[in-house]
């Protein structure tokens, strides 16, 4: 009985800490969202108050939707993010499997070579990347962005996934080999499902910098037809810097899509965890 009471106290304390941190994490988002629905005067008078029937005002959102082509920007961001993510996960997992599973000459060297990319920001090579894209006629296409982001995401994906794949039981893979499975089947059928939680984690970490990147869209694909949502809202903030209603509304809109993407993967993460693992 004393253990039961003890664990209740402990779980209350755990909830207390987590709720406190949740409030800290969400407070600034709350500030943006709440104020984006208020009239200009109310934003300044009482920034923390919820919008009431008197102070409620959608003028910010109206300005944003009238001005920018947000739906197209959103679609561009989605295409770039999802396609890059797919290639990063597929190529990254394949390379990670080769590095963690096989002993071959140059294994350590190859691992270090691929890990180099974690250390150096790909931005340092921007000038040369731009030259390559101009030469191949890919400027102002989404393909250029997808290529750059795939290269950018691969090193971290390989690093994390090979770390996780080293923990996959050798007995399982050898059992598969004895049963006559090819190396490709072992990778696809045995190892990939087991590292699904790690894949979801890599997906979340790869997706965020891609979605939020400002640099490469600005340099490689600034045309109206290929603008991403981050570039779109940045340009918008630049133009409307004193129109706080519009800026807050634009920021609010920029949060929504990435939040949805994150929620999708976060569910996959849980599914991977509950379904996977060696039983």
């Amino acid at each position: 009985m004393s253990t039961a009471r003890h664990s209740t106290t402990r779980s209350l304390a755990a909830h207390g800490v987590l709720i406190l941190y949740t409030v800290i994490a969400l407070f600034p988002v709350f500030v943006i969202v709440v104020n984006s629905f208020k009239s200009r005067r109310a934003i300044f008078a009482d920034p923390l108050a919820l919008p009431t029937s008197e102070t409620f005002d959608m003028v910010g959102y109206q300005t944003v939707l009238k001005q920018g082509d947000f739906l197209l920007y959103f679609q561009n961001s989605m295409i770039v993010t999802v396609a890059s993510l797919f290639f990063v996960l597929l190529f990254g997992a394949m390379a990670a499997f080769a590095l963690s599973e096989y002993r071959f000459r140059g294994n350590l060297l190859m691992g270090l070579y691929l890990a180099l990319g974690i250390m150096i920001p790909i931005r340092l090579g921007t000038v040369a990347i731009l030259q390559i894209m101009v030469a191949s006629g890919l400027v102002n296409t989404l393909t250029a962005l997808i290529l750059v982001y795939t290269a950018q995401g691969l090193p971290l994906a390989v690093f994390i996934l090979s770390e996780f794949m080293r923990g996959v039981s050798d007995d399982l893979k050898n059992a598969g080999r004895i049963d006559g499975l090819s190396e490709y089947t072992i990778f696809l059928r045995l190892v990939l499902p087991l590292v699904r939680p790690a894949m979801a984690t890599v997906a979340v970490f790869t997706m965020i910098p891609i979605w939020n990147d400002l640099w490469f869209p600005l340099i490689l694909a600034p045309s109206e037809a290929t603008k991403t949502i981050t570039l779109g809202s940045q340009v918008f903030i630049g133009q409307f810097v004193t129109n706080w209603n519009a800026v807050l509304a634009a920021l609010g809109l920029a949060i929504v899509p990435v939040l949805v993407l994150y929620l999708i993967f976060s569910r996959q993460l849980i599914r991977g965890i509950t379904a996977g693992a060696v039983k």
Binding site: A98, Y102, M110, V148, A151
Partner: peptide, 21 residues
């Protein structure tokens, strides 16, 4: 199979990241 597993990642990574760097 080792080469097949490594090739796509190494190619994209080398062309878009290492060469410009």
């Amino acid at each position: 199979h080792i080469a097949v597993f490594l090739a796509p990642a190494v190619l994209v990574y080398t062309a878009i990241m290492i060469v410009p760097l």
